[in-house]
Design a protein around this nucleic acid. Structure first.
Lengths: 193, 193
DNA sequence: CAGTAACCGGAGAGCCACCCCATTTAGCAA
DNA sequence: TTGCTAAATGGGGTGGCTCTCCGGTTACTG
């Protein structure tokens, strides 16, 4: 599913380096955040920096690959919630998942969300962004149709806010504040009933 | 020597350079955002980069000075609102001011808010941060005492959220979204009555 | 077991923040 | 006014970053 070798398959050494880079990036991004040094990643992967830049022309393209799996897991989780709970509750439960994920990944989500100005990038492979926006949109739509949510809220708003909460609380590692803020946001989008 | 612990006034040339740097920083930060090149600022101020670094040992210390005036204006505005409107309305009106300010200053506010990890910096001169936190705390406290706001919300939460909104919407310059998000937040903190 | 296209990575260009220290200069006192 | 001294300066160095070029290497194919 993820592998579609309709293009010419990668040469063995290329694929090996590609995977070493992704593995190294996983470690380094987790340790230093999304702004980590790409050269450090190349160094840890024992690969020339040119090789890294050839495989991943932008920082974002690397982040995209590194977090693809986690984002997929998050979307799967959304489907679970949708099949198990009432629409409004499903959305809220998923927002909590998203919040935890965002806190755990040190503002990485924000790097994926952002960079809307690089329009090429977006259409080229806004894969994670597209997946997660679609997921949020789906849950949101259901909740709104079920009448448990105010109208006018956009999927991007939710992502932006959760992302924002993680950004805002990131530096002083305050999960209590993050939860408080999420509760605020949830109360804001819920219809008084 | 020991009987005059008072700081000497700046030498005239030092003061001149200091002011040139601040003026240049104002332009450059406005144009390129808070991450702008410090060397470019020194260049535009026609000053050696060492001089810039001596006057402002960190990027943050420069931002601090550059935005001191605007932050003061914002706090003054808070006092106006407090003297004119009901506590809950005053807070909300001020949040809207804050939102506009944050949007206008291209994530600069966020740079001031953040960096809580540099603990030295905070106590050394968290001037803007302290001012604005105190202001938010004051308005919030009044509103809570007047019963128009849910309890448990912290001043930092409000700042974090508004800051967050500006961060989240910054890159695609969408004032409509920013306003929508702020409305959400306001509805979240307001008590249903 | 070649021949060739794909791939590699060292080296280098052009940024940047930050620091060292020889030189200049403001301000004061005689 | 003049000379002294501490304060202030800024050119240039260090080391780090991103990103590119290109001569050498290597995996696949026929």
């Amino acid at each position: 599913m993820t592998d579609s070798p309709r293009q010419r398959p990668m040469r063995a050494d290329a694929r090996r380096n590609y995977e070493r880079i992704v593995a190294a990036a996983q470690e380094v991004f987790a340790a230093d955040g999304a702004g980590a040094s790409l050269e450090e990643i190349a160094r840890r992967a024992e690969v020339g920096s040119a090789t890294l830049h050839r495989h991943f022309p932008t920082r974002r393209s690397l982040l995209e690959v590194v977090f693809h799996d986690r984002v997929e897991a998050l979307c799967a989780r959304a489907r679970e919630h949708a099949g198990r709970s009432a629409p409004g509750d499903a959305l809220i439960a998923w927002l909590r998942d998203l919040n935890i994920y965002a806190a755990a990944s040190r503002g990485l989500a924000s790097s994926l969300l952002r960079d809307g100005r690089d329009t090429d990038l977006l259409q080229e492979n806004g894969d994670c962004r597209a997946m997660i926006t679609a997921t949020a949109g789906d849950l949101l739509h259901r909740a709104q149709q079920a009448g448990s949510l105010r109208a006018g809220v956009q999927p991007e708003d939710l992502l932006a806010l959760v992302n924002a909460i993680s950004l805002a609380t990131e530096h002083h590692r305050d999960d209590a504040q993050a939860n408080r803020l999420l509760d605020l946001v949830i109360d804001g989008i819920r219809l008084p009933h």
